[in-house]
Simulated assay, not measured.
Amino acid sequence: MEILHTGRFDLERAETAPGWMTELNGGHVPETEEYGTSSIVFRDHRPFHPQRLWDLLAGGLDAFGVVRSKGFLWSASRPDVQALWSQAGPSGPCDPVAAPVVVSGEWPEDPEERVELESRWHPVFGDRHQELVLIGVRLDSDGLRAALTAGLLTDAEITVGEDARRALPDPFCEWDLGDLHDHEHADPVPV
């Protein structure tokens, strides 16, 4: 009762406030400039090499200015599972969330979802992909993108076949895959 429907808001008066006029005259400094925040989206179909991904995360994403990151990823040693990555500060669980369509064979029933899935289908990897958003302060976008790309499998590593890729050194803890939608089995990773 003290805030809503009081009749105390006056649009004409608000429009003459100094902050309003500064904004209208283009004098406002966007937060991205004022605080140096920015983001990148990293996408690739190639899987991460589990040891190189671990090493990158152990080195700390903060070295690139990252303060928050989230998205989907997959590892060469775990090709049957898409994982959800969600990092904030020093905490970064990586949880199994779904079996990719290429593995499960379960296509979406919704026609729009199916069209979207088909539009990003890869001839070798199907719907498995990396899609991460990384947000930071004074973000080293080029360095971060290069480090993430270096964590992916090389062409030579891809050609060895899936069985050999499954046997790659994988320092991440095992996942309980009994229920791929159960996020209580977080895989703590160094960040």
Rank of each mutant, 00 (worst) to 15 (best):
F9N: 06
F9C: 05
D10P: 03
D10M: 03
L11Q: 12
E12A: 15
R13G: 00
R13N: 06
A14K: 08
A14T: 07
T16I: 00
A17G: 03
P18L: 04
P18T: 01
G19S: 10
W20C: 03
M21L: 15
M21V: 15
M21A: 09
T22Q: 13
T22F: 01
E23H: 14
E23L: 13
L24K: 14
L24G: 03
N25W: 06
G26K: 01
G26M: 04
V29C: 05
V29P: 01
V29H: 02
T32A: 12
T32K: 10
T32I: 02
E33D: 14
E33Q: 14
T37R: 13
T37F: 15
T37N: 04
T37C: 05
S38E: 11
S39F: 12
S39V: 00
S39T: 00
S39M: 05
I40E: 02
F42A: 08
F42H: 14
R43W: 10
D44M: 01
H45N: 12
H45Q: 10
H45V: 07
R46M: 02
P47S: 08
P47C: 05
P47E: 10
F48S: 00
F48E: 01
H49L: 01
H49M: 04
H49K: 06
P50W: 07
W54L: 04
W54E: 04
L56D: 09
L56Q: 06
L57R: 14
A58D: 15
A58N: 11
G59A: 05
G59S: 05
G59E: 07
G60A: 00
L61K: 02
L61T: 11
D62S: 13
D62Y: 07
A63V: 05
F64H: 13
F64K: 05
V66W: 11
R68H: 14
K70F: 08
F72V: 05
L73M: 12
L73G: 08
L73T: 10
L73D: 06
S75A: 06
P79Q: 08
P79W: 09
D80V: 00
V81I: 15
V81Y: 11
V81K: 02
Q82H: 09
Q82W: 09
A83M: 15
L84I: 10
W85K: 07
S86P: 00
S86D: 15
S86I: 11
S86V: 12
A88T: 06
G89M: 01
P90G: 09
P90H: 04
S91K: 11
G92C: 13
G92N: 12
G92I: 00
P93R: 03
P93N: 00
C94N: 13
C94F: 12
C94R: 10
D95Q: 11
P96S: 03
P96V: 11
P96G: 15
P96Q: 05
P96N: 07
V97P: 01
A98N: 08
A99K: 10
P100H: 08
P100E: 07
V101T: 13
V102W: 02
V102S: 14
G105D: 03
G105A: 02
G105Y: 01
E106D: 12
E106K: 14
W107I: 00
W107M: 11
